[in-house]
Amino acid sequence: MAGKKIFQIVGFQNSGKTTLMKKLIEACKDKGLAVGTIKHHGHGGPPERLVINKDSEQHRLAGAKITAVEGAGTLHIEAIKDQWELENIIEIYRRLPIDIILVEGYKKMNYPKVVLLRNVQDEFLLEELTNITAVISREPLRSDRLSVPFFETVETEDFVQWFIKKINED
């Protein structure tokens, strides 16, 4: 994670990504780190304008200095073009006064990531995704061949502590 640190939180809808993002933002803020967040709006169509209950607004309320959400070619830091790739957004963020970029979504990108699993049916993600540094699951895993740290949903605070230690090491 040379330069600005980039870390992804990925999983399917309702897996707890936004809740975890808020905890990580708050933990980073407590450590004096300025956080920028990028949210992938994967529900079809452009994202709604900022609304208090939307994920990117929750990121801001948790303490993120910069937030963005992208969907269907619309990027809120409001800038519109045919399509925004994550790399384009990160290039903008690299110029901003932040220490870490937390990305919610963009499962297929190759940044260090934690995968959130809702159930054992989601375990196929562990075979499909790259650069997995940790896994959080609501249920015990079927596989015992996991080569990264595993946290149960109830251990989220343990994961946050692990995460803060990891970003300080890199």
Rank of each mutant, 00 (worst) to 15 (best):
K113G: 06
D82I: 11
L61K: 15
S56G: 02
R60W: 05
I77N: 13
A2E: 12
I90L: 05
H59M: 06
E91S: 04
E70L: 08
E155Q: 13
N14E: 12
Y111H: 03
F151P: 06
I167H: 04
I6R: 09
G45Y: 08
G105F: 13
N119T: 06
S137M: 13
D99G: 07
G44R: 08
S56L: 12
D144E: 10
K31V: 00
I6H: 00
T153H: 09
Y93R: 01
I25M: 08
V115S: 01
T74K: 12
V10E: 03
T130M: 04
A34P: 09
R49N: 09
I80W: 00
L126C: 14
L61Y: 14
S147Q: 05
E26N: 05
T67D: 02
T156M: 14
I89N: 09
L24T: 00
I52F: 15
L116F: 06
L141C: 06
K5L: 09
A27P: 03
L117K: 06
A27T: 00
G11M: 15
E26Y: 13
V160Y: 07
D82R: 12
P140Q: 13
E104T: 05
D158V: 06
P47Q: 10
Y111W: 12
G44A: 11
I132M: 08
D82G: 15
E91N: 05
R118Y: 02
P97I: 02
N131R: 07
I101G: 02
I66H: 04
L117N: 04
N14F: 13
E127K: 15
T133S: 12
I136H: 15
G105W: 13
E169P: 02
K107S: 06
F159E: 04
I38G: 11
M1P: 07
L24K: 13
R145E: 14
I9H: 00
I100T: 07
I38T: 07
T37G: 02
I25Y: 14
V120P: 08
K166N: 15
I167F: 15
S15K: 07
G63K: 03
S137A: 14
N119L: 04
E78D: 10
F151W: 12
L125S: 09
N110M: 03
M1C: 03
T74G: 00
K107P: 07
T133M: 05
I90R: 01
D144K: 10
V154A: 14
C28W: 11
M109P: 00
H43P: 01
S147D: 09
I167E: 13
E78S: 11
I92A: 09
